[in-house]
Each structure stands twice: as structure tokens, then as C-alpha cells.
Design a protein around this nucleic acid. Structure first.
Length: 127
DNA sequence: ATTCTGACA
DNA sequence: TGTCAGTA
């Protein structure tokens, strides 16, 4: 049972090593940071230190890129995912079972969305 | 920080 | 042709 361990949070790898480990270019890592997808630790001197979580994040970015998302979309996805992770961690701390993770009760199967007849693509206005 | 390239639509 | 990701 892997809970969020503190050392997965600590930045240990330099940018070159991190890039090597995830199979990306060094500049690409800097780009992702500039786009707000990532915020690695900094040493006192200000050089980047990537944590194990950062590496997972980078691999996740790769998957989402393959899926066809752009970097802006990926930033949103990652934000939501980390929020969820944070909330789940909180609930685990309360020793409550997150209802949406419960295997017991199968949530009412959402019926496939019936096609909404979009008339013409004119919100309102000119012909 | 800026520029250049390749892919894509 | 314009945009975007990745590069030099």
C-alpha cells in the first residue's frame, strides 16, 4: 500500500538526469515548467531538482500529448488530478472511505448521452 | 530569451 | 498559412 511518501516529494535529480530518465530533452523540461505543468524544487543556488513525483508527472505529460492534448489542456488535467490526490489524501487521513472509490455500490450506470440536436451553429443573430 | 524547424490542419 | 511542440 503506497501512501504519499515524503521522499517521492523531494527533488533529487538534476535536470539532465531527469530528462534522461523520462526520455525527454532538457529544454523540453524547462518548457513544461514555463508552461506551468511542473514546478520542480530548486537548490539554494536555484538549480532545478526533480522529484520522483515530478518524473511521474513528466511521463503523464507524455501520455497526454500522445492522446492529442495540447500543453494548456494538460496543465488543466494535471491541476485537477493533483487536487483529487490532495482531497483523497485528506479523506484517507480522516479514515473515511471516499464514496466514489467504493467498489461495493456500483454507481447508477450513466446512460449514454442522447444526441443533442444542435440546430445551426448560430448562437443567435445574423443570418 | 529568441529563433528556427517540422508537423499538422 | 497559422499554430504548436520541440529544438539550437
Amino acid at each position: 500500500m503506497s501512501l504519499p511518501s515524503p521522499d517521492a516529494e523531494r527533488g533529487v535529480y538534476g535536470i539532465s538526469v531527469a530528462a534522461e530518465l523520462v526520455g525527454m530533452g532538457v529544454q523540453t523540461l524547462r518548457l513544461y515548467e514555463a508552461r506551468g505543468l511542473l514546478e520542480p524544487d530548486r537548490t539554494e543556488g536555484g538549480t532545478r531538482r526533480y522529484s520522483a513525483n515530478d518524473l511521474d508527472r513528466l511521463r503523464r505529460i507524455g501520455d497526454l500529448l500522445d492522446a492529442g492534448l495540447n500543453l494548456a489542456g494538460i496543465a488543466m488535467v494535471l491541476d485537477l488530478e493533483t487536487q483529487l490526490e490532495t482531497q483523497n489524501a485528506y479523506l484517507r487521513a480522516q479514515k473515511e472511505e471516499p464514496p466514489w472509490l467504493s467498489t461495493a455500490a456500483a454507481p447508477p450506470a450513466r446512460r449514454a448521452r442522447t444526441r443533442t440536436p444542435k440546430n445551426s451553429s448560430r448562437p443567435t443573430g445574423q443570418p
